[in-house]
Design a binder for these strands. Structure first.
Lengths: 126, 126
DNA sequence: CTGGATCCTAAATGATACTG
DNA sequence: CAGTATCATTTAGGATCCAG
């Protein structure tokens, strides 16, 4: 994610483009709602309403908005069952599951460092 | 990061508290600026101005704001050299470096899936 | 049930000016 | 140079209503 010096490279333009694309993808995905949704999906297939219940505090709007974004980036697959009332299910794609593994690690990290962070906060002046 | 059922547990209150704290910490760090700063720091000690140059597009305000937040959570250490003009350096703490490892993985993931994501975007209707 | 559209508020962010 | 404060603006987010 570091911007490098490409001057002189024959593929300078391509490399710059890849970097800016990587940064754009990172910005899409690196927000709490997207990561919490990915974490909630796990390796399951989950209905919209179930997802809304499981991602604590998320609104209808944020859920649909982030699901669309994840779908657009090929990380989530959306399946509509033509029943009435409609049943829509979401599941992670292969790349989506790869990303989920990194989110899992981030969640693990969080839980392992709760005590340290609490202590730091007390010492900081809070 | 999943909310569990603690009813009946003797430590119910403690567990709920740990969960809500984990969620709060996660919400703090799971934003693009914080993660990009952590990634830019790497295992180095970096001056404020250098950090601002390296995290492309970040404003003075966002940088200070996120650095304070990371410092408050004990992930970044701030060192002020009493020179003139002042020199302020930032470096990741032990826990901060642990988090950086997961961010590294997320960046790797991003670069590995650029092609897949580009293809998904084209197919989605963009 | 799911999803889109709308309106409205709160929060994030950028620009700027000022200080030690 | 680093940091704070302020102000203006943009964006995120919530509430609600309607449609398939």
């Amino acid at each position: 994610m570091v911007t490098k010096e490409y001057a002189g490279s024959p593929d300078e333009a391509d490399l710059r483009r890849a970097d800016s694309l990587a940064r754009e993808i990172f910005s899409d995905v690196a927000n709490k709602w997207a990561l919490l949704i990915i974490e909630a999906l796990g390796d399951r297939t989950v209905r919209f309403s179930a997802l809304r219940d499981e991602v604590e505090g998320i609104s209808h709007k944020m859920l649909t908005q982030n699901l669309r974004m994840l779908e657009r980036n090929g990380l989530v697959e959306r399946t509509v069952h033509a029943t009435v009332p409609p049943r829509v299910e979401y599941t992670l794609t292969g790349p989506g599951r790869g990303l989920r593994e990194t989110v899992d690690l981030m969640c693990d990290w969080t839980h392992r460092h709760i005590a340290h962070i609490e202590a730091a906060r007390r010492g900081f002046g809070g």
